[in-house]
């Protein structure tokens, strides 16, 4: 009995020590990365699973429009590409990752909204996406009135799904799924007629090798999404620097090149660069 008691004590002491050190290292991490550009490393949050925007390839590298934006901004902040640490920023975790200092900034199809601005700040926008439909090639519709007759698919809880249900076509038959891949399966085998979300995301899927030629964008504009770079709240210094980097990227053609490279294969026309509105 005595032995067991002391063993329990030792175990709980060990657990306590471990958790305590874990907290400690977290804190120091957050502290050192707070400055962002003062030291020459950056931790950037991106999507790992969004073709054309932020995707981890089989060999561990990252590709996509968001990634190209992040690389350019990092270079402008004086950080070598090897010194960038990528972190996965899943949609519901983005605010907390910024608040906890896990990342210096987030470039992950992060729409600028008033609710989010209460928690974090943004730089940019670096892109204005529009909600659109992805349909099987040759079947796409040309007017918004026809949306109500379609079997639509989108990701459950997403802004696009909500817009369909609340404004665009409340009577439409909407199938929400946990991810886009289930919708693409449905689109392929005919269970749904259209997948709806931001045209950037749709273009990324349509441009994938295995989907090329099968799907096309309907080209409807169902409402804009302003993608911004998420930064810690009221960090105006970082905001100005990122805004300046984005301005430069718009002007020297690197931005248009990135759009063309990542979204072009789906027939996505390079739009005009957006106007920087955050921090002005």
């Amino acid at each position: 009995m005595r032995v067991r008691k002391s063993a329990t004590l030792a175990a709980s002491a060990l657990v306590l020590a471990l958790t305590a050190t874990a907290c400690g290292s977290d804190d120091s991490n957050g502290g050192s990365s707070d400055g962002g550009d003062s030291n020459d490393t950056l931790t950037i949050g991106i999507k790992y699973d969004q073709p054309g925007l932020g995707l981890q390839t089989a060999d561990g590298d990252f590709t996509g429009f968001d990634v190209d934006i992040a690389r350019y901004v990092a270079a402008e902040l004086g950080v070598e590409e090897d010194d960038i640490t990528w972190r996965q920023a899943q949609s519901p975790e983005r605010e907390n990752m910024i608040k906890n200092g896990d990342v210096d900034f987030i470039v992950a199809t992060y729409s600028i909204t008033d609710q989010r601005k209460e928690e974090v700040s943004f730089a940019g926008p670096y892109f204005v996406a529009a909600q659109d439909l992805l349909m099987r090639s040759g079947e796409s519709i040309s007017s918004n009135d026809e949306i109500g007759d379609l079997n639509l698919c989108s990701v459950s809880g997403s802004t696009s799904a909500q817009k369909i249900q609340e404004d665009i076509a409340p009577d439409a038959n909407l199938q929400p799924y946990g991810g886009y891949s289930e919708c693409l399966t449905g689109l392929e085998n005919g269970a749904v007629d259209a997948l709806t979300t931001d045209n950037t995301i749709l273009a990324g899927y349509a441009a994938q090798d295995e989907h090329q030629g099968k799907f096309e964008l309907a080209g409807l504009d169902l409402g804009p999404e302003h993608y911004g770079i998420g930064i810690p709240k009221d960090d105006t210094e970082l905001q100005e620097k990122i805004n300046a980097a984005l301005e430069k990227m718009f002007e020297d053609g690197a931005w248009a090149e990135a759009v063309e490279k990542n979204l072009g294969p789906a027939g996505f026309e390079v739009p005009d660069a957006p106007e920087i509105t955050e921090g002005k």
Partner: peptide
Amino acid sequence: AAAIGVAEAALLMKTMIENEAQV
């Protein structure tokens, strides 16, 4: 069931987190 789009509590939670940034 939220994974296949049944409008139950977990799906509403996802919706609210998407809109409100209050995890």
